[in-house]
């Protein structure tokens, strides 16, 4: 509890050692593979999914993200799962949401991290196995000053 919230120091020598190593990034290929894994053989079709994100992101640490799927959310016709993917963070997966008829509406909102300007994809799998998709292009601004 009393641990100081850590500060960051890049410019000074202490940070130098860590600069040599950096995590691998996801690639568009890795993202496509993850999306195919989610779709499970179905071919994602554009439509029915709305992905609401700002086009210009002030800070990539918390990007408001809302997914809405056009579905009656009845026992006979509903969204089973929604997944979010990106192509340039270290990992392609962002989150998966499990939904069902009890949701009433297929509406989910969260905040995500984006390390760079890139596209984000949302996939929704319906109970009939069909998969629908939407994507958003985002510009993530860089901090002007690197802080210590």
């Amino acid at each position: 509890m009393d641990l100081p919230t850590a500060s960051r120091r890049l410019v000074l020598g202490g940070g130098l050692a860590l600069l040599a190593i950096s995590p691998a990034r996801a690639t568009p290929e890795a993202m496509r593979a993850a999306m195919q894994g989610f779709a499970g053989g179905a071919e994602p079709r554009p439509g029915r999914v709305r992905l609401e994100m700002p086009t210009l992101v002030e800070n990539g640490n918390a990007v408001p993200t809302t997914v809405i799927v056009d579905s009656p959310m009845t026992a006979a016709d509903h969204v089973v799962e929604i997944a979010l993917f990106n192509e340039r963070n270290p990992l392609p997966d962002i989150a998966r949401f499990t939904l069902g008829p009890r949701c009433g509406q297929a509406w989910v909102s969260t905040r995500i991290r984006l390390g760079d300007t890139q596209s984000v994809h949302a996939l929704a799998r319906m109970n009939d196995g069909s998969v629908w998709s939407a994507s958003a292009e985002l510009i993530v601004t860089l901090p002007a000053c690197i802080e210590g």
């Binding site: 919230t5 410019v11 800070n59 000053c145 802080e147």
Partner: peptide, 25 residues
């Protein structure tokens, strides 16, 4: 501050500017 991903003080914020102009905080 989204940049910090946590809550911080005015002093921390001023330190950010000081580091930005390459001054010793």
């Amino acid at each position: 501050r989204l940049e910090w991903q946590t809550t911080g003080s005015l002093q921390r914020r001023i330190r950010g500017c000081l580091t930005g102009v390459r001054a010793e905080p």
